[in-house]
Amino acid sequence: MRYNHEIKFFSEDKRHYNPITSQNEGGTGLIADVMGNVTDVGADRSTKLFGSIVQGIKVIRLVEPIDEKWAYLTIDDGKTKYRMRTTTTPLKNVSILVGEDIGKA
């Protein structure tokens, strides 16, 4: 298995709501930058897992788990943010099922 994609994990812990300005303030911070294997979830598997065909679902495989709390990840410095749906930790590697972040700032 090739680990040929750069996966960056980000945290939003420093982000907070300011009631005076009615805006979210603060930024996001990079937690980890690791190499991983990325594959799309096919239509058959998507139907079995979610009961319907869901677009934008990917399986990310890593050698070591990310121990810190993270909010979203990006793949190969893309603009698309992916949020965790579920994760499994078999005997070897770590598999994370992520979906595209829709509508969240």
Rank of each mutant, 00 (worst) to 15 (best):
R2W: 04
R2P: 04
Y3T: 09
N4G: 00
H5T: 05
H5K: 12
K8Y: 02
K8M: 10
K8W: 04
F9N: 08
F9Y: 15
F9R: 08
F10N: 03
S11G: 01
R15G: 09
N18V: 00
P19A: 01
I20H: 03
T21H: 02
Q23G: 00
G26A: 02
G27Q: 01
T28N: 08
T28H: 11
I31A: 00
A32E: 11
A32Y: 04
D33P: 00
V38E: 06
V41R: 09
V41P: 02
G42C: 11
A43G: 01
T47E: 08
T47M: 09
K48A: 15
L49P: 01
L49N: 10
F50K: 05
F50E: 15
F50M: 08
F50R: 13
G51E: 05
I53C: 11
V54K: 12
G56E: 08
K58I: 04
K58F: 03
I60L: 14
R61K: 14
L62F: 10
V63F: 11
P65V: 05
I66C: 01
K69Q: 12
A71E: 12
A71T: 06
A71N: 12
Y72L: 08
Y72D: 08
L73P: 01
T74D: 11
T74G: 05
D76P: 12
D77M: 11
D77N: 15
K79P: 02
T80M: 12
T80F: 05
R83F: 05
M84F: 01
M84P: 04
T86V: 02
T86F: 06
T88W: 09
T89L: 02
T89A: 03
T89Y: 00
T89W: 02
P90E: 15
K92R: 15
V94S: 00
V94R: 07
V94E: 07
I96C: 00
L97M: 12
L97K: 05
G99Y: 03
G99H: 06
I102C: 07
I102N: 12
I102A: 06
K104N: 03
K104Q: 08
